[in-house]
Design a protein around this nucleic acid. Structure first.
Length: 901
RNA sequence: GGGCGGGUAGCUCAGUUGGUUAGAGCAACUGGUUUACACCCAGUAGGUCGCAGGUUCGAGUCCUGUCCCGCCCACCA
């Protein structure tokens, strides 16, 4: 017997421990079964659990548990990411408290600190996930800096280097002056800024006293100007092209050139060219063979090339000072405020500095195949619209800067011969294990972008490229994986790169991959993009806003089951999610209701065998079955079908809605109430059938409470998730002794009874008699309807809480309501306010008239009759007839009322 | 500048290939402890489906235009 009240905390801890003890989540290579694999997006070691994790992992757990119910061999691979730049910043901050930099402690000591931090804090988020009930195979947990994973990442670098996709070059990259490293384009986020547009005059060398005016937001880079450019067709400046002008700061003569890239209608149409500090300028500089003068250092301060007046000055301070200098010396024509977009470092939150530096780059492999894989449906995105975003990115893809000037991460496996030119590949050694004579070499100081290491995640976690480990992990069995569940914000960072990596590396280099080969190499077949969780007014959840609830608090308060249920119910397909704690509370309510429905069940005899469907079915006596039993079972089979369909489309909240309505409205509010009138084993067996099925259907969403009820109720000896879930057809087979042939008409009959009960209750409520039990009802119906009512008379009386529900042959002078089966009168026992009643009925009559008019109009329309399909026309006719009949009844009652004065 | 998503009841959202009288939950209001459940039950009220055209016998659903809100991409200094 279960406890009186449902309290999730203890039972959730209990069952998670038991599941782990019994290796319920452990993968099994079972060739006779279909493999079903999912990779958990590895959270960062520095991460703290937020609502996004909860949603994401709940969805995965639902998919995984469903797969177990379908008797598939399941492998859910958990992991954790070393979070390169993020943890490095954290450790540096800790050092800063002691006034130290990483250079003070040295590389090895620094890495030790980071490792220790990870050991201490790195598993917190995984422990938090366990509270949610995630059923992943913890024995397969992979960390991106595990020794074998580390080697795999290096092997990936070496292989791509060997194939010619990785190269080293001096390019203008996004530089973060705070983290002191290069960043990829994806790590730069554009933000709107209120800037100042400075109009600066440059005097023409050949025409003293004549000026050309440049508009710039970055005066601090003027010292790096090597030219001034205009559009070749710009009439205003034709005479100046080919001449020179004086650079206003650090005075020097620089050429005036023409280039198509200049926009005539922006600012003055004149652009200052600073190749070392601007992407466009860099390209123009390349085209015109101009030098690049870098005046800003890696720490964001100006250097000696900016001249003694500005050297050592911070770039933003310098912007102000140069502005003042220009003003004081008469170069500044005017300044105006101006809103522009500036790239910021995602992690450090400061503007990035385009900086010329030596970096490693990846030319993406298999770009075309990656597009095809999705276009041809080998990989299916949900919602599908993300395909466009994905394809658009691939169409405009640029080489990826993969080197980072950090220490925490996978160190680039390139060695340079000591004392030789590092830029000459003759002096390079590229391998996983390094040169045999390490004393003559020094390794590249940089590490790889964290996202580079996670690009190979799906196959590396399954043992690739080591054949022994692959066999042990069951690579050929579990790869390609089935579903990936992730946020659309990392579609470029992670999803696209995993696809390209898999396509490129899981086989030899080929000019063009065949469709079969693409299918073999892709890392996953479906990508489900979740929505982003926002607060109740649509703002992104963030620490600084303090609008993000702590998931652990929620779990404490509502149980993991409640949180899972609540979150899924508020997560429509592919749209952002407005968080509402109210929904979480509702999630818990559902669990409580389920709990209480079992307490109702336990009031009945618990003698009968419940250990299987077959056992339950043998307890059913076909002759004792009533309309309500067949109806509820028929309804169950019906919703199982729609449930399956919506789940197959990954429409979780809709599927839940279907279950919820069946359980709450059909089962609890109707069937349980009706069955209170009944006795005998058959009715309890029907309850067992329904409850058993409900536990199975609900289990993937609320695993804990369903397990508790399953075990307590004796539905089986195994764990609930080891029990297969029948399809509705299989269940129908097992219930073959029940005649569902007439279920459709029975459902209609029950609908009519329900309509009658609802209407009669409403009548009772309208006259304020809801609390009274001695209210008398009369009904008037034709003979067919009378038979139906007679069959359900006891139920009706019970549901209306009345002892008196009798037939009358003529309309009575009592408050009345008209339903399909006939008219219902209520005896208010008080003297009737005839005028009020007439008004109430007239109001109802008006509504009926409106409905009648709609259908009459339709049926009088010849075009409608000619074009509309038969069932629609028939439906309109039936409806009209039904409403006409009701109207006739209503008018009869009204007439009766009018006859009494 | 380009692309995508959204605008349906006070709030959050369903509404499947156009087809019977546009739904649910929450909130509001009314009444109720009847032996599973007040984390409950019964009932009431609340909508010109952003706006304007069009196609159609029929439009929340399809087409065109338009206005808001949100996101992504993009080198106008």
């Amino acid at each position: 017997m279960i406890e009186v009240s449902y309290s999730p905390g203890d039972l959730e801890r209990k069952w998670y421990a038991k599941w782990l003890e019994n290796d319920l989540f452990k993968r099994k290579i079972a060739p006779d079964k279909i493999a079903y694999t999912v990779h958990m997006p590895p959270p960062n070691v520095t991460g703290i659990l937020h609502m996004g994790h909860i949603l994401n992992n709940t969805i995965q757990d639902v998919l995984i548990r469903r797969a177990r119910q379908k008797n598939q061999s399941v492998f859910w691979v958990p992991g954790i990411d070393h979070a390169g730049i993020s943890l490095q910043i954290k450790i540096e901050k800790e050092l800063a408290k002691e006034n130290k930099t990483r250079h003070d402690v040295g590389r090895e000591a620094f890495l030790d600190l980071a490792r220790k931090w990870r050991e201490k804090h790195g598993n917190i988020i995984l422990d938090q996930l366990k509270k949610l009930g995630v059923s992943c195979d913890w024995s397969a947990l992979k960390y991106t800096l595990d020794p074998d994973y580390y080697r795999t990442v290096l092997a990936m670098f070496v292989e791509w280097y060997r194939r010619g996709y990785i190269y080293k070059g001096s390019r203008l990259v996004n530089w973060c002056p705070v983290s002191m490293t290069a960043l990829s384009d994806e790590e730069v986020i554009m933000r709107q800024q209120n800037s100042i547009l400075y109009y600066v005059q440059y005097e023409i060398v050949e025409k003293p006293g004549t000026f050309i005016t440049v508009a710039t937001t970055r005066p601090e880079t003027i010292m790096g100007d090597v030219a001034v450019a205009v559009h070749p067709n710009d009439e205003r400046y034709q005479e100046f092209i080919g001449l020179h002008c004086w650079r206003p700061v650090l005075c020097e003569s620089i050429p005036i050139i023409a280039d198509e890239a200049i926009l005539k209608d922006f600012g003055t149409g004149v652009l200052k060219i600073t190749p070392a500090h601007d992407m466009v300028d860099f390209e123009i500089g390349q085209r015109h063979g101009l030098a690049a003068i870098g005046v800003i250092d890696k720490n964001g301060k100006l250097n000696h090339l900016a001249g003694p007046e500005f050297a050592e000055m911070d770039r933003f301070e310098a912007r102000k000072r140069v502005g003042e200098y220009l003003k004081e010396n008469g170069f500044l024509l005017k300044e105006e405020s101006y809103v522009n977009n500036v790239g910021f470092s995602e992690r450090a939150g400061v503007p990035v500095e385009p900086m010329l530096s030596e970096q490693w780059f990846l030319r993406y492999p298999c770009v075309e195949e990656a597009k095809l894989a999705v276009q041809k449906g080998f990989i299916h995105f949900r919602p599908e619209r993300w395909e466009k975003t994905y394809t658009h990115w691939l169409d405009n893809i640029k080489d990826w800067c993969i080197s980072r000037q950090l220490w925490w991460g996978h160190r680039i496996p390139v060695w340079y011969r000591k004392g030789k030119d590092r830029n000459d590949p003759q002096n390079w050694h590229v391998s996983v294990d390094g040169p045999e004579d390490p004393e003559n070499w020094e390794q590249d100081e940089d590490v790889l972008d964290t996202w580079f290491s996670s690009a190979i995640w799906p196959s590396a976690t399954l043992g690739w490229p080591d054949e022994g480990t692959m066999a042990e992990m069951g690579f050929n069995y579990f790869y390609p994986t089935e579903d990936l569940v992730t946020g659309p914000d990392i579609i470029f960072f992670w999803v696209a790169r995993m696809i390209m990596s898999g396509l490129s590396l899981l086989g030899d280099e080929e000019k063009r991959l065949s469709d079969d080969e693409i299918r073999r190499r892709i890392p996953f077949k479906n990508v489900y993009f979740t929505g982003i969780i926002r607060d109740h007014i649509g703002r992104k959840m963030s620490k600084s806003l303090g609008n993000s609830p702590d998931p652990l608090d929620l779990i404490e308060q509502y149980g993991a089951d409640g949180v899972r249920m609540g979150l899924l119910s508020m997560a429509p397909n592919g749209q952002d999610i407005l968080f509402s704690e109210d929904r979480v509370a509702q999630g818990k309510k559902l669990c409580t209701k389920l709990w209480n429905s079992f307490r109702f069940r336990q009031q009945g005899s618990m003698e009968g065998d419940r250990s299987s469907i077959e056992a339950i079915v043998t307890r059913i006596d076909g002759d004792s079955l009533e309309t309500d039993d067949i109806t509820i079972l028929g309804k169950l089979l019906e919703i199982m079908d729609t449930f399956e369909r919506t789940m197959a489309d990954y429409e979780f909240s809709r599927a839940l809605q279907i279950l919820h309505t069946f359980f709450w409205s059909n089962y609890c509010d109707w069937y349980i109430e009706i069955s209170k009138m009944r006795t005998g084993e058959t009715i309890w067996a029907v309850h067992d059938l329904i409850l058993r099925q409900l536990l199975l259907l609900f289990h993937p969403f609320i695993p804990f409470v369903t397990e508790e009820l399953w075990q307590d109720h004796g539905y089986g000896t195994k764990f609930l998730n080891e029990e297969p879930l029948e399809s509705s057809d299989e269940l129908r087979q097992k219930l073959s002794q029940i005649d569902f042939g007439k279920a459709a008409t029975l459902i209609e009959e029950i609908e009519h009874i329900r309509e009658l009960v609802v209407a009669a209750r409403a009548l009772k409520a309208q006259f304020g008699l809801a609390s009274r039990r001695d209210v008398k009802f009369y009904f008037k119906a034709d003979s067919a309807a009378n038979e139906v009512i007679e069959r359900h008379r006891q139920d009706i009386k019970y549901l209306l809480l009345t002892q008196f529900f009798e037939e009358t042959v003529e309309a009575l002078q009592l408050p009345t309501t008209i339903v399909t089966l006939g008219s219902i009168h209520i005896d208010t026992a008080d003297s009737l306010d005839i005028e009020a009643e007439k008004e109430r009925l007239s109001h109802e009559l008006k509504e009926l008239d409106r409905l009648i008019e709609i259908n009459q109009k339709k049926l009088q329309n010849e075009d409608f009759l000619a074009h509309a399909p038969q069932n629609i026309v028939g439906g309109a006719r039936d409806l009209l007839a039904e409403n006409m009949a009701k109207k006739k009844e209503l008018e009869a009652v009204l007439l009766k009322l009018s006859s009494i004065q």
